[in-house]
């Protein structure tokens, strides 16, 4: 009887400790911070390049102009929610779905988009490109 009880007890301890142990191991995915997001090292952004990063649940396009300036805009087109891209030749943001164009500030300048893209801020810190949103309080 005591043996069964002991075995059961140890099995129970195992059943409790296993999830807790697993829980304590930090997950592979870096934590999901939404106030700011690291878009990568500065070296990953040669002039005239861009990258789509996830900001919380939304995609954000981070791009570097020919002159070296960084910008970040919401990457969701305001027309039909397609994901936009950076056109390095004209230095514009382009939506491939209906050829909507935005300027580098996110203002809709051509094509069907009805509204501008939301702007994010880019902060360069220790060779890292960090995208932030202004605190909403």
């Amino acid at each position: 009887m005591d043996i069964i009880l002991g075995a059961g007890f140890f099995a129970w301890i195992g059943a409790v400790l296993y999830p807790i142990g697993k829980y304590l191991v930090p997950p592979k995915v870096a934590e999901m911070s939404v106030n700011s997001v690291e878009a990568g090292g500065i070296s990953e952004f040669p002039p005239s390049s861009s990258k789509i990063v996830r900001f919380g649940r939304r995609p954000v396009i981070v791009f570097r102009q020919q002159n070296g300036d960084f910008h970040a805009l919401s990457a969701t087109c305001t027309h039909l929610d397609c994901t936009v891209q950076y056109k390095s030749d004209t230095e514009q943001i382009w939506c491939a779905c209906h050829n909507g164009l935005y300027d580098i500030e996110g203002k809709n300048i051509s094509g069907p988009p009805p509204k501008p893209l939301m702007q994010y801020q880019v902060v360069l810190q220790n060779d890292k490109v960090i995208v932030t949103r202004e605190e909403m309080t």
Binding site: M1, I4, L5, G8, F9, A11, W12, G14, A15
Partner: peptide, 11 residues
């Protein structure tokens, strides 16, 4: 496991 343990405890 819990039910088993509880049963054993009851006995």
């Amino acid at each position: 496991i819990i039910t088993f343990l509880a049963l054993a405890l009851y006995l």
